[in-house]
Design a protein around this nucleic acid. Sequence first.
RNA 1: GGGAGAUUAGCUCAGCUGGUUCAGAGCAUCUGCCUUACAAGCAGAGGGUCGUAGGUUCGAACCCUACAUCUCCCA
Length: 876
Amino acid sequence: MALAKTYTPADVEAKWYQRWQEQGFFKAKPNPRKPAYSVVIPPPNVTGVLHMGHMLNNTIQDVLVRRARMQGKEACWVPGTDHASIATEAKVVALLKEQGINKRDLTREEFLKHAWDWKEKYGGIILEQLKKLGASCDWDRTRFTMEPEMTEAVMRVFVDLHQKGQIYRGVRMVNWDPQGQTAISDEEVIAKDVTGKMYHLRYEVVGQEGQYLTVATSRPETIMADVAVALNPNDERYNHLHGQKVHIPLLGREIPLILDEYVAIDFGTGALKVTPAHDLNDYELGLKHNLAVIDILNNDGTLNEKAVLYVGQDRFAARKQITKDLQEAGLLDKIEEYQSVLQTSERTGAVIEPRLSLQWFCKMDQMAKPALAAVETDEIKLHPPKFKNMYRVWMENVHDWCISRQLWWGQRIPAWYLPDGSFVVALNEEEALKLARQKTGNENLALTDIHQDEDVLDTWFSSWLWPISVFDGFKDPDNADVNYFYPTNDLVTAPEILFFWVARMIMAGLEYRKEVPFRNVYLTGIVRDDQGRKMSKQLGNSPDPLDLIAQYGADGVRTGMLFSAPAGNDLLFDIKLVEQGRNFTNKLWNAFRLTQGWEVNQDLPFASEKAVEWFGARLQETLVQLDEHFEKFRMNDALLTVYKLVWDDFCSVYLEMVKPAYQQPIDAETLKHTIGYFETLLKLLHPFMPFITEELWHELAPRGAKEYVCVAPWPKLTPVAGSADILSRMTTVLDVVAGIRNVRNQKNIGPSKPLVVAAKTEEQELLAAYAPIIKKLANVSELSFVHEGLTGAVSFVQGASEFFIPLEGHIDLAAERVRIEKEIEYNRGFLESVLKKLSNEKFVQNAKPDVIERERQKQADAEAKIAALEQSLASL
RNA sequence: GGGAGAUUAGCUCAGCUGGUUCAGAGCAUCUGCCUUACAAGCAGAGGGUCGUAGGUUCGAACCCUACAUCUCCCA
């Protein structure tokens, strides 16, 4: 059956994925005879769909896992999803709204039912998509951060940390997201540079009608929450006002002028309005000066009755209105533009309100220390290492972690409030009741007398346990899985969540297993478009990964992504790279078509010994490089190394050397080696291109029931004796071939016309031994050796050898002369620079002997080359 | 404002402790080829005063200093 000229991935991908699963190749269980290799997936949002970032991230994980599997390790890649508290809740709220349902009209239970329905319907789509990519996860281990066991782990940890005093409840300034109507952690806030407005407001001095103090603020709507105006005591402009009071504009309430060196004299007017409820710095100033706190905002960002004015209006509407009113009242001095930073919510994009609120916090200082040390000492290596600095800075300045969220979708905080307002923390209701009875001494206390905290926990409070909880390490800390697979080996994730997630997993790992959760963290870049813009739905610049796979094949897409993905660097996605990946699969397919079409003749002698010997050596050389690249997590270099080995060395050189003439048979020995090499290449390629390699593996030779490249042993390093010599001899030979081909190109002689070549060389023995290869690759009908240069021939110099190609009618003597003279000139210049070095006493004294030896070699080579060129010139 | 990193061919990047034929790769470009595996291909070629200015050294893309530009993190 004739094979198609182009490879069609769609025909084979689904088939092999199914077979792998049927064979159970992705399943992992503790196996004392094998080293463990485990990776936990960064759980994607359960309701999300695959985007380009996932493609990159999961391709890298799959490459690592597949290679480990082939290396004979018990490879375990745990998949799963994250409940993504705020993002999912926002989606569900939006969906309900479309159906005309308002979240506020629902009870918690009703809402959660909708949310779970949503999760059941859309949850896990993303995992199915990963299968299309070829991800070799152990799907039996699929976990979800909100499933009962995971939730139980979260509860245990909460209770435990609370008992240890690491979790506390307190009133703190938090980042309030008025759209999500929840507090979020510092890490979920994104600062944006904006051009803002600075409003200069006039505060009338109490008892001095017509006397004003001008205060600059970016948020005029918060004046109703003012409790003071602060001045710097060193600011002489305001000496006359010390001890006075002022009226809040419009509102009229009297507030004191206070003095504090915190106030920047040169910023604004040097007078700072103090609003402790709505600004962290003001809050601290308020504490210091014993000021009241007036919170004028509702949860949704509208003004409450404490504002007195503009009650019920949104904060931004109120700002507009008050600006107008101030203007009319003559209390607005001016408005200036200025550069400022706007804090926005990572989740909803809403402008954050710093707000005092009662929340749950997890202390970080104690846990951060060992987690920092683990990275500092390289017990955990970050790739690339530049992230170590960032990690250190963050860990040294970490604030307590606000872990409560005013949401319903998530794990409800296991704290129960007693009638007297105090609370108990327990694993469940029954425990809580028990504790409550103990605490109050009231044995008659009933479940109806206590009520659980309404808030849920930050999603990261479950995902920081992920590397332990996926192996049930909380429920059963000594189980075989966790003992065998924990710590995991490598983690592949995005730098954006280095702190959110990676740092906290390290803390949890050290806290609960006294062992880091992984050894290597590979930080991928952001996938951007070819103009460097982040891929986003809004811009519409992100291709649909599944469309890409359908069009180019999963193997093509995987390699395309990896071609341009050095660790930690952003990836400029270009469809051309995916095309390149697709073309590569096609190249491989055609190499297979070639070998597959050969007839064997058992009587023929071994014709390609030199080629076989060379490719064997080349393969070994490449294996070493490949291991180095993997060792350093340089995935794109690893891929490129195999790419070049396959395309250049195997296809362009080796196959051309061993390929029999058209319709001629091949000898059995050559074929055997060729198929063997092909198999090795398929193994090396498999982690990158799992599908086509599996397909060809089975086409190349009959296979047993369990014989898949997916589980084939990774090629071993077996040094070849004299390989350096073998490689350098072939390099010389290929240089000669290139020289002849170059002449062909220059003289415009097609490849089908055979050439006659004469060599004047001291390496006759070498060239004679490789003559069949030179003849074949350069289409040379006769290679002879001469002592004198030929006249009437085109010549070129390779090393110290000269080659002559008689070409009647193709020779332009003058042009040849110029060309050779130029080359001589260049080499003389080079020789001169070498001689200059060698005649420099200081160089000879200071340089290492081998460096000097190299310079001497350069000198000898250059001299020989010049001599050869001069000969050429003479023989013209 | 504080800190980190970067700046090498048109693009994306390598370049290990300063020292091999005067800096490499992939892609792109140019030239010639439909040569019976592959035009999603074959053969060959061109292209960089290594951000700028100083300095250290026999020798600097690499070390030091300053400046410029960019990116990221934190405030």
